[in-house]
Design a binder for these strands. Sequence first.
RNA 1: GGCCCGUUAGUCAAGUGGUUAAGACGCCACCCUCUCAAGGUGGAAUCACGGAUUCGAAUUCCGUACGGGCUACCA
Length: 548
Amino acid sequence: MSKKIADLLFPNIDKTPDYYEKMYPERNLDDNAMVTRYGPSPTGSVHLGNLFSAFCDMVYARQSKGVFFLRIEDTDQKRAVEGGIDNITSILKSFAINPTEGYGIGGDYGPYIQSKRTEIYQTYVKDLIRRGLAYPCFMSEEEQQEIKEEQEVMKQKIGIYGHYATDRDLTYEEVKENLESGKDYVIRLKSPGNAEHQIEIKDAIKGKLKFPEHDIDTILLKKDGTPTYHLAHAIDDHLMHTTHVIRGDEWVSSIPLHVQLFEVLGFERPEYAHIAPITIKDSETGTIRKLSKRKDLWAGAKYYEESGIPIDALHLYLSTIANTNFEEWYLKNQDKNIEDFIFDFSKQGIGGTSFDSSKLENICKTYFSRKNGKEVFEETLSYAEKFDKNYADFLKDNKDLMIAFLNIEKDGPRPRKDIAKYSDVKEEFSYAIDSMFEKENYSKLNSSKDYDIDMIKRYIDIYNINDSKDEWFNRIKEFSINEGYSPNVKEYKKDPSKYKGHVGDVCEAIRVMVTGRDKSPDLYEILKILGKDKLNNRLELFKKYLNK
RNA sequence: GGCCCGUUAGUCAAGUGGUUAAGACGCCACCCUCUCAAGGUGGAAUCACGGAUUCGAAUUCCGUACGGGCUACCA
């Protein structure tokens, strides 16, 4: 009887599950190797949460010498977006999240795009129908809507189950009749569960979870013959031999269904690891919510690339939210890399994680502080070539000079920490390149202080580029005394009336003249890099500015 | 409404019956100092609430509140 129905519904499916079981044999991997997967649906842009889950997939597979594959989950044509797939692969690439197998890469377990696997899903569904574990349901959407409303009023669980599942036991003749009258239908699971029974499932991250057994006749195949996520998940992850399903925790409530699907299909089920979402406290409402692409700049993956956050720094940040002990480990092992850390599901947070932009910034600053001038230059240049062509040209024309500036205060145990992203370089070192300085020069200066141009000129005259740092500072102190300034701040503070100011004020005047701002890295280094001629040029610019 | 999950400082969090309740980021103060970024020292700040178990609870149990997720022919 049910075999006849199966043949009636799927006359063109001539294979059996056995065929596919043979086609996708066990993987030849170490016992503890994890096979993970990232399964995006091509519905538009990728956000930080997606990136985070893909990052986890990568890291766990990598450290266990397993496989991390990419599978495009495009079973919903309505939501597909033009170019969506390319967008995903290019974002993964630019964020250095590299699957070892899958869509666009290849492997023995493809096709890695669900729209090309329809026949596989239908083969298993046909078998389920044959075995009396699934059935065609001809209920119209209106009928289903009515049932839902009734259930809402009666405060019952919503869905097709129990006596609502009127098409469960349709006879062959009834099915045939419905088919001939051209009715649309879906294939539903004939759920063998009983909601009175409790099931207990172990999640690798969340621990033991208890649910009532699944008893709803969930849709397996939509009216267009494509699978729902649930069915595709069970079949693909079985056939592709996924060992660990790492996914967002919006899926935990589907666990009972998925467990049942694996049972009914006779599959061994993978381990589940449901990761907590990245959230943010909404500044307007004060409530905690998931990152929103529209409201939060930093939610979209593209933001990081465009604003010049180093990928390695972002990985560091993702690591700190992935495993709560990572941050401390990294602090103690500053010479090591993420690859050296052993990630563990048990160290993964189970509540939501709030996005902390200041922490990210701190990580970025530390990242930059460990790079020497040349490295920062090269990375900034490749960023600029992508997002700021104009600046890239400036950089190329002034390579040695820029590297010299980027190297200031880089030696020693406490390297300078003032850059958080590539785009900061342009801002922070605007005084480095003459042609740029001439344009911008003192526009950022909002101090209305009077600076003694003549004094600065006298200083340039006595400036000696060959001075060591100590010599330089002694010279500036001596100069301060001659100009009526105190050579040290403390002394000045004791009796300010005795002086025009202190050595710091002298330095400030020089600094402002040279850099166009009242804060900068080490002045000695800056003067030395620029040299006397340029100091004179800048003095001329400064004069013009002050006279204006 | 139903089913799940969660709640330790501003944020991320350690913690598994006895702790002065770690640490990190942020914040504040001071020190260093030619300015800033750092760095050093110190500081403020946390167990959602109510019961129960216990000699003893952040930790176990039960309620309540709040937050999150799911409740699609989306994933």
